[in-house]
């Protein structure tokens, strides 16, 4: 299971990559593996304000439905429209083409408070 060291993570298995004023967000390799084949992703509207911990999207596999939670507070500035027709990108490339949204960072401290790769790995090993 890949856990890139440059990313930040949540206990709900989302990752976050800060890119200037905003951050890309997706679900982790561990999360996509647990879900299995992703067949549908419900994306939020661009422009929507989300609060840290709020469910803003849904990833559905053949068997299950999982909420995606906002790792930070902010405005959704982009959603990965490629997932509409090719939701399997979440399985194939969870940290790259399988990204889900971009959120404008409202509070840098929230980013700093997220888990680092080591912390997230420890969480998985601890039995999530």
């Amino acid at each position: 299971m890949k856990t890139p060291s440059e990313l930040r993570y949540t206990e709900d298995h989302e990752w976050l990559r800060p890119e200037g004023k905003s951050a890309r967000i997706g679900i982790t390799d561990f999360a996509q593996d647990q879900l299995g084949d992703v067949v549908f992703v419900e994306l939020p509207e661009v422009g929507r304000d989300v609060k840290k911990g709020e469910a803003f999207g849904v990833v559905e596999s053949v068997k299950s439905v999982s909420d995606v939670f906002a790792p930070i507070t902010g405005k959704v500035v982009a959603a990965n429209q490629a997932l509409v027709d090719t939701p399997e990108l979440v399985n194939q490339d969870p940290y790259g083409q399988g990204w889900i949204v971009e959120i404008e960072i409202a509070d840098d401290a929230e980013v700093g408070a997220l888990l680092d790769a080591q912390g997230y790995t420890a969480l998985q090993e601890g039995g999530h």
């Binding site: 299995g36 084949d37 067949v39 596999s61 053949v62 068997k63």
Partner: peptide, 12 residues
């Protein structure tokens, strides 16, 4: 087993 490594779609 709910699935094997091939995944549900491949098994189906």
């Amino acid at each position: 087993p709910v699935q094997y490594p091939a995944g549900i779609l491949a098994e189906h």
